[in-house]
Design a protein around this nucleic acid. Sequence first.
DNA 1: TTTTCCCGCCACAAG
DNA 2: CTTGTGGCGGGAAAA
Length: 390
Amino acid sequence: MALSSPPESSSSLHHSYSRKQKSLGLLCTNFLALYNREGIETVGLDDAATKLGVERRRIYDIVNVLESVGVLTRRAKNQYTWKGFDAIPAALKELQEEGAKDTFHRFYTNENVKVSDDEDDDEESSQPSSQTDSSKAGSLPQTSDSSKIGWSCVTDNRREKSLGLLTQNFIKLFVCSEARIISLDEAAKLLLGDAHNTSIMRTKVRRLYDIANVLSSMNLIEKTHTLDSRKPAFKWLGYNGEPTFTFTLSNDLMQAESRKRVFGTDITNVNVKRSKTHENAASERTLKMKKHAVEESSCNKSFDTTHESRHGSRGYQFGPFAPATGTYPTATLDDNSRRAFDVENLVSDYRPSYQNQVLKDLFAHYMDAWKEWYSEVTKKDPLPNTSPHH
DNA sequence: TTTTCCCGCCACAAG
DNA sequence: CTTGTGGCGGGAAAA
């Protein structure tokens, strides 16, 4: 047993295609690592797709939900403005107010999810002003709607059918109710208010999975289980700060990232395609870092006492998604720490993840910080390095 | 088996 | 027309 990792069957045969390395959540994490640093002000979709080695389509998914939370704003075709995590609080507040306004009176109880059967979400209701679009119009008395706070969700027309709105509505569920934990099934049902059409709901849930994954990588929510610890569900974390990688790395990484980027040659990210691909050789035994079992519950709670959202200053401060409110009935469970998860993906090179020089460099910095953090948390350092911290 | 959810077809809006 | 955006759901990996 060389590598920790999955409980896969016996001999590790060709590690074929793995969905985990293609997940939206991971992609989002990388996206954030790439753009969440001072100095960034615009992000181009092509640029992102190229650097991250994915198709455009996926970038749209991420960008749409990030925009729903204010981290990004569409500026023009193919171009977005980076607002950063600092824009989240305001966006959240806005959602809350907005949600409280319209028909979003959901009464939840700590132990019982009660939902009235009447209609529900779709926050566009509000003023029943029949806005029969087009056809001249000339002078409309109450035109109003001149976006007050940047992106407003009203004013939207046909096309705006999902993802962005779904994300906002999903967040409203948390932010406008007492519910701290909601399963996607419940969310889908609530955000649908109707549909028992399995088909409709199935699709909705698929979208929610996508959204939940990127929201998770931002640490706005966390995967857990319902109170009766049965069905998987998500817990609202709010804006506690850290987006996965919070430390700022030195300049050399910046440099690395801005290394030449030519159009014709995209990164080597091949499409392993899904299917039982035989997998190309590439089995180079290189790094084989043994991942210490972090399960030592020791590392949990620690940086919780003072959660200032001021990230950016160097230093580690990983936010291991930690069970801040440590309410895990039975410890253990799938504690796939985002962090450990990422480490594993980045370290193993027998499988190409979203590669790029950027990530390699990022990983190096990340490892250093991790070592430091590790030795501090568990008074024993994994290596001769001793952190000077008291 | 069920749950999670990636992939990419293809509709439709912009150039 | 071509290109940019993104619904939508099949079906395969993961649990």
